[in-house]
């Protein structure tokens, strides 16, 4: 029968073993995989400013991006190719708040430069390789 000491060794040994593997894979992901999949060389200062605005305004509090966020408003990973830059610019500062089918978005008051930063951010995200996400709907006519 298992003794308490053996149980302790199982716990400590297993934890250390898997933590080391996890750290090694994480380092590889951060140094190689993510920069390649996200086209890190295309991440300009404008894109970084767009990302800052994305966080500063908690867009993730309603939308999702890369499938992450709240589930109240549309997924925006591919919004740049789905809607195009003009649509994005229009939605952001829409008078009275953008409200398709009754669900309201906060009305923002971005400057023209800020709008371009956000568009640049979406354009960059749009090009990411996300292992097939979002998938094309199989039954779409």
């Amino acid at each position: 029968m298992l003794s308490k000491r053996q149980a302790k060794i199982f716990f400590l040994g297993g934890t250390i073993f898997f933590a080391v593997i996890f750290l090694a894979l994480s380092v590889d992901s951060l140094l190689n995989g993510i920069p390649k999949n996200t086209n890190a060389h295309l991440l300009t200062e404008q894109v970084a400013r767009g990302k800052y605005l994305w966080e500063r305004n908690n867009c993730m509090g309603c939308h999702t991006i890369m499938g992450e966020g709240a589930y109240y408003a549309p997924e925006l990973t591919r919004v740049y190719s789905r809607r195009g830059p003009d649509y994005i610019r229009t939605v952001l500062n829409f008078e009275g708040g953008w409200g398709p089918r009754g669900r309201k978005m906060v009305q923002y008051n971005f400057s023209d430069n800020e709008k371009e930063d956000i568009v640049a951010f979406f354009e960059w995200v749009n090009k990411m390789d996300l292992n097939g996400f979002p998938a094309d709907p199989p039954l779409k006519q």
């Binding site: 894979l25 999949n37 890369m66």
Partner: peptide, 12 residues
């Protein structure tokens, strides 16, 4: 959490 957020595909 790394399947579809830009991580390499071994995470799948």
């Amino acid at each position: 959490h790394y399947y579809y957020t830009g991580g390499p595909n071994y995470w799948l």
